[in-house]
Amino acid sequence: MIEFSRITKRYRGRTALDDVTFTVPPGSVTGFLGPNGAGKTTAMRILLGHARATSGTATVLGSRYAKLHNPGRHVGSLLDAGAVHPGRTGRETLRLAARMMGVPIPHVDEVLDRVGLTRRESTTRVRGYSLGMRQRLGIAQALLGEPRVLVLDEPANGLDPQGIAWLRTLVRSLADDGCAVLLSSHLLHEVEQVADRIVMIGSGRVLAAGSTRELAAGRDLEHLYFQLTTPTDRSAA
Protein backbone atom coordinates (compact mmCIF):
# COMPACT_ATOMS: atom_id res chain seq x y z
CA MET A 1 0.00 0.00 0.00
CA ILE A 2 1.37 3.39 -1.04
CA GLU A 3 -0.32 6.66 -0.17
CA PHE A 4 0.56 10.11 -1.42
CA SER A 5 -1.37 12.67 0.54
CA ARG A 6 -1.32 16.30 -0.64
CA ILE A 7 2.36 16.20 -1.58
CA THR A 8 3.80 19.52 -2.70
CA LYS A 9 7.44 20.03 -3.58
CA ARG A 10 8.94 23.41 -4.39
CA TYR A 11 12.49 24.07 -5.49
CA ARG A 12 13.45 27.74 -5.24
CA GLY A 13 10.21 29.11 -6.61
CA ARG A 14 9.58 26.27 -9.08
CA THR A 15 6.79 23.89 -8.11
CA ALA A 16 7.75 20.33 -9.01
CA LEU A 17 4.74 18.68 -7.36
CA ASP A 18 1.50 20.43 -6.56
CA ASP A 19 -0.92 18.85 -4.09
CA VAL A 20 -0.45 15.31 -5.36
CA THR A 21 -2.79 12.74 -3.80
CA PHE A 22 -3.23 9.14 -4.87
CA THR A 23 -2.96 5.61 -3.56
CA VAL A 24 -1.58 2.35 -4.85
CA PRO A 25 -3.64 -0.48 -3.35
CA PRO A 26 -2.23 -3.94 -2.70
CA GLY A 27 -2.75 -6.52 -5.42
CA SER A 28 -2.63 -3.98 -8.22
CA VAL A 29 -0.32 -2.37 -10.73
CA THR A 30 -0.62 1.39 -10.89
CA GLY A 31 0.84 2.96 -13.99
CA PHE A 32 2.39 6.37 -13.36
CA LEU A 33 2.33 8.41 -16.56
CA GLY A 34 3.38 11.87 -17.57
CA PRO A 35 5.82 13.77 -19.78
CA ASN A 36 9.48 14.15 -18.87
CA GLY A 37 9.79 16.57 -15.99
CA ALA A 38 6.17 16.12 -14.92
CA GLY A 39 7.32 15.03 -11.46
CA LYS A 40 7.09 11.22 -11.53
CA THR A 41 10.64 10.63 -10.36
CA THR A 42 10.41 13.43 -7.79
CA ALA A 43 7.28 11.83 -6.32
CA MET A 44 9.03 8.46 -6.08
CA ARG A 45 12.14 10.01 -4.53
CA ILE A 46 10.00 11.68 -1.89
CA LEU A 47 8.23 8.38 -1.19
CA LEU A 48 11.58 6.65 -0.58
CA GLY A 49 12.95 9.49 1.54
CA HIS A 50 15.61 10.61 -0.95
CA ALA A 51 13.99 14.03 -1.12
CA ARG A 52 11.77 15.92 1.33
CA ALA A 53 8.31 17.18 0.46
CA THR A 54 7.65 20.85 1.11
CA SER A 55 4.27 19.77 2.49
CA GLY A 56 2.11 16.68 2.57
CA THR A 57 2.93 13.10 3.49
CA ALA A 58 3.89 10.01 1.54
CA THR A 59 3.64 6.62 3.26
CA VAL A 60 4.37 3.00 2.45
CA LEU A 61 2.58 0.24 4.37
CA GLY A 62 1.15 2.89 6.67
CA SER A 63 4.35 4.61 7.73
CA ARG A 64 6.97 6.94 6.36
CA TYR A 65 9.68 5.04 4.49
CA ALA A 66 12.40 6.36 6.80
CA LYS A 67 10.54 4.86 9.77
CA LEU A 68 10.58 1.33 8.32
CA HIS A 69 13.01 -1.10 9.89
CA ASN A 70 14.99 -2.93 7.25
CA PRO A 71 12.83 -1.42 4.47
CA GLY A 72 14.33 -3.64 1.78
CA ARG A 73 12.27 -6.50 3.23
CA HIS A 74 9.04 -4.59 2.64
CA VAL A 75 9.61 -2.27 -0.28
CA GLY A 76 11.58 -3.07 -3.42
CA SER A 77 12.61 -0.07 -5.47
CA LEU A 78 14.42 0.77 -8.65
CA LEU A 79 14.77 4.46 -9.39
CA ASP A 80 18.01 4.59 -11.33
CA ALA A 81 19.54 1.52 -12.94
CA GLY A 82 22.82 3.47 -13.16
CA ALA A 83 23.15 3.73 -9.37
CA VAL A 84 25.40 0.66 -9.18
CA HIS A 85 29.14 0.59 -8.58
CA PRO A 86 30.68 -0.18 -12.01
CA GLY A 87 33.59 -2.05 -10.48
CA ARG A 88 31.45 -4.71 -8.79
CA THR A 89 29.95 -7.73 -10.46
CA GLY A 90 26.18 -8.03 -10.60
CA ARG A 91 26.28 -10.96 -8.21
CA GLU A 92 28.48 -9.11 -5.71
CA THR A 93 26.12 -6.12 -5.85
CA LEU A 94 23.21 -8.39 -4.93
CA ARG A 95 25.20 -10.23 -2.28
CA LEU A 96 25.94 -6.95 -0.53
CA ALA A 97 22.25 -6.06 -0.58
CA ALA A 98 21.33 -9.55 0.66
CA ARG A 99 23.80 -9.28 3.54
CA MET A 100 22.43 -5.91 4.50
CA MET A 101 18.82 -7.08 4.46
CA GLY A 102 19.65 -10.38 6.13
CA VAL A 103 18.40 -12.38 3.14
CA PRO A 104 20.05 -15.83 2.73
CA ILE A 105 22.85 -15.58 0.13
CA PRO A 106 21.51 -18.49 -2.03
CA HIS A 107 18.46 -16.31 -2.68
CA VAL A 108 20.74 -14.13 -4.84
CA ASP A 109 20.99 -16.91 -7.43
CA GLU A 110 17.22 -17.35 -7.40
CA VAL A 111 16.54 -13.71 -8.22
CA LEU A 112 19.30 -13.70 -10.84
CA ASP A 113 17.52 -16.62 -12.53
CA ARG A 114 14.22 -14.86 -12.14
CA VAL A 115 15.39 -11.74 -14.00
CA GLY A 116 17.21 -13.78 -16.61
CA LEU A 117 20.81 -12.78 -15.89
CA THR A 118 23.05 -15.73 -16.70
CA ARG A 119 25.79 -16.94 -14.41
CA ARG A 120 28.36 -15.53 -16.80
CA GLU A 121 26.69 -12.12 -16.96
CA SER A 122 26.27 -11.95 -13.19
CA THR A 123 29.97 -12.57 -12.62
CA THR A 124 31.11 -9.75 -14.93
CA ARG A 125 31.65 -6.24 -13.67
CA VAL A 126 28.63 -3.96 -14.06
CA ARG A 127 30.81 -1.55 -16.08
CA GLY A 128 30.26 -3.82 -19.09
CA TYR A 129 26.48 -4.10 -18.70
CA SER A 130 24.00 -2.76 -21.24
CA LEU A 131 21.16 -0.59 -19.93
CA GLY A 132 18.83 -3.55 -20.25
CA MET A 133 21.11 -5.71 -18.11
CA ARG A 134 21.37 -2.95 -15.53
CA GLN A 135 17.58 -2.74 -15.40
CA ARG A 136 17.39 -6.50 -14.84
CA LEU A 137 19.98 -6.24 -12.08
CA GLY A 138 18.05 -3.37 -10.48
CA ILE A 139 14.81 -5.36 -10.65
CA ALA A 140 16.64 -8.36 -9.13
CA GLN A 141 17.75 -6.18 -6.23
CA ALA A 142 14.21 -4.84 -5.81
CA LEU A 143 12.86 -8.42 -5.62
CA LEU A 144 15.60 -9.68 -3.30
CA GLY A 145 13.83 -8.87 -0.03
CA GLU A 146 10.53 -10.41 -1.19
CA PRO A 147 8.75 -7.09 -0.74
CA ARG A 148 5.02 -6.42 -0.67
CA VAL A 149 5.46 -3.04 -2.32
CA LEU A 150 7.39 -2.30 -5.52
CA VAL A 151 8.38 1.14 -6.79
CA LEU A 152 9.84 1.05 -10.29
CA ASP A 153 10.84 4.14 -12.26
CA GLU A 154 10.84 3.39 -15.98
CA PRO A 155 12.00 -0.19 -15.60
CA ALA A 156 11.25 -0.90 -19.26
CA ASN A 157 13.86 1.63 -20.34
CA GLY A 158 16.59 -0.14 -22.28
CA LEU A 159 14.83 -3.51 -22.31
CA ASP A 160 14.40 -5.28 -25.64
CA PRO A 161 10.91 -6.42 -26.74
CA GLN A 162 11.40 -9.81 -25.08
CA GLY A 163 12.49 -8.02 -21.94
CA ILE A 164 9.44 -5.77 -22.00
CA ALA A 165 7.12 -8.76 -22.38
CA TRP A 166 8.96 -10.51 -19.54
CA LEU A 167 8.64 -7.42 -17.32
CA ARG A 168 4.91 -7.26 -18.02
CA THR A 169 4.43 -10.89 -16.94
CA LEU A 170 6.61 -10.39 -13.86
CA VAL A 171 4.82 -7.28 -12.68
CA ARG A 172 1.43 -8.88 -13.30
CA SER A 173 2.26 -12.00 -11.32
CA LEU A 174 3.65 -9.94 -8.41
CA ALA A 175 0.45 -7.91 -8.25
CA ASP A 176 -1.63 -11.09 -8.46
CA ASP A 177 0.33 -12.33 -5.45
CA GLY A 178 -0.82 -9.25 -3.54
CA CYS A 179 1.96 -6.74 -4.16
CA ALA A 180 1.26 -3.04 -4.53
CA VAL A 181 3.19 -2.01 -7.65
CA LEU A 182 3.85 1.59 -8.71
CA LEU A 183 5.38 1.69 -12.16
CA SER A 184 6.27 4.76 -14.17
CA SER A 185 6.67 4.52 -17.89
CA HIS A 186 6.53 6.30 -21.21
CA LEU A 187 5.26 3.22 -23.00
CA LEU A 188 1.54 3.93 -22.99
CA HIS A 189 0.51 0.73 -24.72
CA GLU A 190 2.58 -1.34 -22.35
CA VAL A 191 1.10 0.36 -19.33
CA GLU A 192 -2.38 0.00 -20.76
CA GLN A 193 -1.83 -3.76 -21.02
CA VAL A 194 -0.48 -4.33 -17.54
CA ALA A 195 -1.82 -1.61 -15.24
CA ASP A 196 -5.10 -1.92 -13.33
CA ARG A 197 -5.00 1.73 -12.48
CA ILE A 198 -3.49 4.83 -14.02
CA VAL A 199 -2.27 8.05 -12.46
CA MET A 200 -1.41 10.70 -15.03
CA ILE A 201 0.50 13.79 -14.00
CA GLY A 202 1.65 16.92 -15.81
CA SER A 203 3.46 19.96 -14.43
CA GLY A 204 3.40 18.35 -11.00
CA ARG A 205 -0.38 17.97 -10.86
CA VAL A 206 -2.53 14.87 -11.01
CA LEU A 207 -4.44 15.21 -14.29
CA ALA A 208 -6.34 11.97 -14.17
CA ALA A 209 -6.53 8.95 -11.91
CA GLY A 210 -8.68 5.88 -12.06
CA SER A 211 -8.96 2.39 -13.39
CA THR A 212 -7.35 1.77 -16.75
CA ARG A 213 -10.67 0.58 -18.15
CA GLU A 214 -12.46 3.79 -17.19
CA LEU A 215 -9.73 6.11 -18.43
CA ALA A 216 -9.18 4.37 -21.72
CA ALA A 217 -12.92 3.84 -22.23
CA GLY A 218 -13.95 4.09 -25.84
CA ARG A 219 -10.61 5.42 -27.07
CA ASP A 220 -7.09 4.40 -26.25
CA LEU A 221 -4.89 5.80 -23.55
CA GLU A 222 -2.70 7.68 -25.99
CA HIS A 223 -5.61 9.81 -27.05
CA LEU A 224 -6.34 10.81 -23.46
CA TYR A 225 -2.66 11.37 -22.74
CA PHE A 226 -2.24 13.85 -25.57
CA GLN A 227 -5.45 15.56 -24.64
CA LEU A 228 -4.41 16.08 -21.01
CA THR A 229 -0.71 16.71 -21.31
CA THR A 230 0.58 19.57 -23.39
CA PRO A 231 4.04 20.48 -24.59
CA THR A 232 4.03 23.25 -21.98
CA ASP A 233 4.15 20.55 -19.32
CA ARG A 234 7.69 19.95 -20.40
CA SER A 235 8.77 23.57 -20.39
CA ALA A 236 7.40 23.83 -16.87
CA ALA A 237 10.13 21.43 -15.86
Binding site: L48, G49, H50, Y65, A66, N70, P71, G72, L79, M100
Partner: peptide, 8 residues
Protein backbone atom coordinates in the same frame (compact mmCIF):
# COMPACT_ATOMS: atom_id res chain seq x y z
CA UNK B 1 20.55 6.27 -2.96
CA UNK B 2 20.73 2.46 -3.11
CA UNK B 3 22.40 2.29 0.30
CA UNK B 4 19.93 4.69 1.91
CA UNK B 5 17.02 2.79 0.39
CA UNK B 6 18.13 -0.20 2.46
CA UNK B 7 18.99 1.83 5.58
CA UNK B 8 17.20 5.19 5.61
Amino acid sequence: STTFALEP
